Amino acid sequence: MRVNKLTIAALAVVAGLSLTACQNDDDAAATGQSDSPASSSSSSSSSSSSSSSSSGGSDSDGSAQGTAEDSAGESSGQEQSATGKCRTDELEVTAQDNTIDGDEDNTVAVTFTNGGGRDCSIAGFAGVDLKTNSGTVSAERTGEPAPATVLKDGKSVSFFISYPANDTGGSGVRVTGLVVTPPNETKSVTLDWPGAASLPVTDGSGTPVKVGPIGSAGQGD
């Protein structure tokens, strides 16, 4: 009887140990299943963060490039504005006799001095009309090249007016005034005529007065 009791007790101990081992295996399996989603979630989150960081870097570079381009465009616009065309109200207009002995024609030089407080651009031909006792005589362009000139504030540029001398011995056409219109402007300036008192009478086939392009009579200080 004692032997049987010991055998039964031993069997009970073995059964208890087996049951404990099974429970531990089940707990380990359950723990492994719960850890796997957490690991996957962490990896996904890390990947998303890396992608977001990369995307943010691209946006930052694009924004910096756009800002640089905008600044360059603004700078270019400011430069163009600083050298806008010269306006009549910004120019001091003067005229003086510039005839040189021996020249075929007489010459008057007209000078534009920039007093507008900014640099400006001037190009082409000024409008020139001579007031006479027989009406207005408009000058004809010479057809020479007329490149643009940036006229610095306080600087001057000149052009010439040429006309034939009155060697006919008669009174000719008496000149009473000079009207000058800067290139690309509609506002004119009226000056005293500094040249010879008269022009020879023509047959009306064309004007004897010629005007050269801006800069044709030199550029001064």
Rank of each mutant, 00 (worst) to 15 (best):
G170K: 02
D89F: 07
G154Q: 07
V137G: 05
S198Y: 02
A197C: 10
L130I: 01
S216R: 00
P147D: 15
G143D: 06
S43C: 01
E144V: 04
T67D: 15
S48Y: 06
G16V: 03
S138H: 15
A64N: 09
D105N: 10
Q219R: 13
L11R: 15
S121H: 04
V150N: 08
I214Q: 02
E104S: 06
T111W: 08
Q23C: 07
T67I: 14
K85E: 03
A95W: 00
V180P: 06
P213M: 12
Y163C: 12
A82K: 02
S162D: 15
D119S: 09
P208D: 01
N24A: 15
V3Q: 07
K152L: 12
L19M: 09
V157Y: 10
E140N: 11
G177C: 12
C120H: 04
D35L: 04
P147A: 15
D221Q: 01
G135R: 07
A109T: 09
R174A: 08
D203S: 15
G206M: 13
D119R: 02
A9G: 12
S18Q: 03
D192W: 11
I214K: 00
T176S: 14
T20S: 06
S76K: 13
K152G: 13
N166Q: 11
V175C: 08
R174T: 15
S156C: 06
A126I: 01
P183N: 07
G172K: 00
G62D: 14
D105F: 05
P164I: 08
T113V: 07
C22R: 11
F160P: 04
V93W: 03
S54N: 04
E140R: 14
V14E: 14
